[in-house]
Design a protein around this nucleic acid. Structure first.
Lengths: 326, 326
DNA sequence: CAAAATCGTGCAATCGATTGCATTACATTC
DNA sequence: GAATGTAATGCAATCGATTGCACGATTTTG
């Protein structure tokens, strides 16, 4: 069944006919055993419940199905420090490759997994562990954060703060770096207390709002590490009577579907989630099926796009923005 | 390895030791082939990208992992009318059971799947196909819709409308039935044009808002089939300058995480999503591992809870609500 | 103490598709 | 026509864990 080109045309037809009549279907377990292949990829996520990831998972599943692969999911892998759970899937031959959407895992167990003798094909998506020798499909977070921050500067804001992502996450570092870069390029700096502890959840956004309200001197604009934390932040501010964008401007990151529908509609950096998922799945399956992978891990870098909505406006004191058009 | 009780204590220890030294792990493909079992369940979803489902998937994955099962996901199965894709997973022995979260599938192919000779264990979750002989874990949608509608009536609303779910979905019918029941019990009826075409997405909610704005006589309150459509509806109304709850009250359904953080925070029926997912996975795995299933399919019915937030208030004209406390 | 029952271990067959080699049939070349 | 080559088919071995039976050792029972 796996190499029909070996038999002649007529015979192939006879076989197809027999398959039709008897309703034969290939037993995947037997094939897996013999071929040492599972036609399945394992997708490891930090949190399926998060729309950001579930949309990407959607794209992954679609691409994988097209190429005849099943998709196994493991969620909340962060707790699995030793990578034990992931290892088991491969040692037991249940999956052919790993698509990793969590940059917070320990590097060592992953190296063990990808190097001889295991040699598990691995592609990281969205969150790439820095300097790790893995293929990755990601966006340029530093640059995108610069664009977001420049947007605020362009509107005339001078006191600009940042809500961080979760501690220890690559994206947190990158987005904050872009933020700082953009400020520096305009000769601005953020007070240390304007860097608010955050995370990637709405609850953390609410907490950041409390932290914000307690500030002596408040920024007039905030660049939030993602949409969820931005939405929570806005919701928290509202309880204190602050209004966006009248009192404060907020930029998010991701462009979740809900970002257009909250009030005010959120200005944000749109990440090409569909493409991220699709390309990552493609890359992984190519790696699985292809020749031995090139020694240098390839990074595919997609770009994000600024989507301007109503959550950003010139600061209260400035009536004529310096370069709002940019 | 699969029945350690067959060997004596000392021997078992020696084996454990050998496993440790050699780093042996069981080849799942070989076991699957011999045992005709995959230790994997297949979860079929209408849309992973939707938070509602992804949260449930989260719970399913957790429960499955506890019991040593992997989770394969198939998304957007609605397009697969013949059930071909689902069939293949079982014919090829890749999964031991099916957890179906989509009530919109054709019944016939599912019956073929669950009956001899295939006999695939199947549990439906959330959306149970009516009168189908399958086990199910679900909530009482009719009753919950009644509760939601009664809440509006209790606030003093008399002109109450409904945004429907997607056509052909069980939940659409059930929630509308509960809505109509509650009105009838209070001697009220909804004008036919107050029943707005909707769906389960924010986009449909925006469209429903347009439909709403075009009405001659507008309801003072709306019961929406779910939170997403409610959020889209509110967002659409805002563009026309209508304010909630001043001009209109809205009740949603599901209690998505974002429901607290939109403006105004949404009054909604909370569905126990974590429990739905967990119990469904439990039921399915019991079915897979257990004795031949009882001939009568069992429905586990969980209840939803009214969460009152700021999107509902007495109607503009009524200053003293009749029984707002209820 | 013999007979019966129980327990533990060893062994060969099995699940079903794939794989590479051996064999046969047929076409091509000198 | 013989020799060489190619294409198609047949066949047995293989992947690795499980399964049930057979056998020997040990304990229980009459």
């Amino acid at each position: 069944m796996s190499r029909p080109e070996r038999v002649s045309g007529p015979t192939r037809e006879r076989i197809a006919e027999a398959v039709r009549i008897t309703g034969y279907t290939l037993n995947q377990a037997a094939r897996s055993l013999r071929q040492r292949t599972a036609r399945t990829i394992l997708v490891a996520l930090p949190d399926i419940g998060n729309t950001f990831f579930s949309t990407i998972l959607d794209a992954i599943e679609r691409e994988a199905a097209l190429r005849g692969y099943g998709v196994l999911v493991v969620n909340r892998i962060a707790g699995d420090v030793s990578g034990r759970r992931l290892h088991e899937y491969f040692l037991s031959n249940r999956a052919d490759g790993l698509l990793l959407l969590d940059g917070a895992l320990a590097l060592a167990p992953l190296l063990v997994l990808t190097q001889a003798p295991a040699n598990v094909p691995l592609v990281m998506a969205c969150e790439a562990i820095p300097d790790a020798p893995f293929h990755a499909v990601r966006t340029d977070n530093i640059y995108a954060a610069e664009v977001a921050t420049r947007h605020l500067i362009g509107l005339g804001h001078r006191r600009i703060g940042h809500i961080q992502g979760p501690p220890g996450n690559v994206l947190t570092t990158e987005r904050q770096t872009g933020f700082t870069n953009a400020l520096a390029a305009s000769g601005l700096t953020a007070q240390p207390e304007w860097i608010l502890a955050g995370g990637f959840t709405m609850e953390r956004g609410v907490a950041a709002a409390e932290q914000f309200m307690a500030l002596r001197e408040r920024p007039s604009a905030i660049f939030a590490a993602n949409d969820e934390v931005a939405i929570g932040f806005l919701s928290g501010l509202r309880r204190h009577g602050l209004e966006c964008p009248r009192d404060i401007s907020v930029v998010g990151f991701d462009d979740l579907a809900v970002a257009t529908h909250v009030w005010p509609p959120l200005t944000t950096m749109r990440q090409p989630r569909e493409a991220l998922g699709r390309l990552a799945a493609e890359a992984l399956i190519d790696l699985i099926e292809g020749k031995p992978p090139s020694r240098v891990p390839k990074h595919t870098v997609l770009s994000s796009e600024l989507i301007v909505r109503a959550s950003t406006a010139p600061p209260p004191s400035v009536s004529t923005p310096l370069s709002a058009a940019s």
